[in-house]
Nucleic acid binder design. Structure first.
Lengths: 143, 143
DNA sequence: TAATTAATTGCAATTAAGTTGCAAATAGAA
DNA sequence: TTCTATTTGCAACTTAATTGCAATTAATTA
């Protein structure tokens, strides 16, 4: 799907070495419409070492290539950062939709979180909205 | 702090037996300004069995006495439900503030999530907004 | 192109989080 | 007081994630 060229460019831009492991993990994210857990990647790329996957996810997240997706599952999921995130500047607002039927979690890029009145004294930096319900796909193929 | 009477009333109202374990766990929630993890309760009430705590948290959550608080920590946290939640009707919208300094997570009861335009096809049921930043307390006693 | 080196990887071991099964104890109804 | 379904405690287990270290390798430089 995604050309290897753009994958390696991402790694270059974030100062990470272009190793086969990283390229294949990044490729998984690139080809996925939903957020991926460690287990998802382990299943998709059986030859990779568990620990290497954990460490790759951490360094990708540190570098702003992917971001952590919070859902009710309890296990960490990650998705590609859309815009230009770096180690120093992160997009600070995310909306995700978690489907109670298929259990997949999607980034809703199209909608953004409206401004809201945080109580005085709090310094808000990052906003994560998790919407739970039934996704488009599960809704349409309802029996 | 909170009188034992109201604690036992909560258990009664949700059809749970008034056992010493449940009363002390519910009391912890009642006295806490922030969401509590399994580990928090284990530390506060050393005499309680780990598994009993897990099961109590589950049944409280099932009955709508407490709700799961999602934050970036990865481990589950819970807080008392404000309004009248039952097994069948749950308050479906929560805003939480997670402090990156003290690592505590608070319920922001005062603010509610504005209506937003979910893409066509999605059926949204529940909304959880996590705001991350520096809390009131950490902000004021900044050195 | 070969040598160098710091980043990356793989493996083993460990910690932490959460679950399951089952027998003993007990809250609350009869 | 008796009875029974709920709750509890314990042991064992599963799953998620982390750490340390030696071996490997990507990318720089000679």
């Amino acid at each position: 799907m995604t050309d290897t060229n753009s994958i390696t460019t991402i790694l270059e831009n974030h100062g990470l070495r272009k190793t086969p492991n990283r390229i294949s993990i990044l490729n998984e994210f690139s080809n996925s419409k939903h957020a991926l857990s460690h287990a998802d990647i382990e299943n998709a790329l059986k030859e990779l070492d568990r620990v290497t996957i954990y460490r790759t996810l951490s360094s990708f997240a540190d570098q702003g290539i992917i971001h952590k997706v919070l859902d009710e599952s309890g296990t960490a999921k990650y998705a590609l950062c859309q815009s230009e995130c770096t180690e120093h500047k992160h997009e600070d607002s995310h909306v995700h939709f978690s489907c109670t039927k298929c259990k997949l979690t999607f980034c809703l890029e199209s909608i953004s979180i409206p401004m809201l009145q945080i109580p005085k004294g709090y310094a808000a930096k990052e906003f994560n909205l998790l919407v739970q319900g039934v996704c488009k796909n599960c809704n349409t193929k309802r029996i």
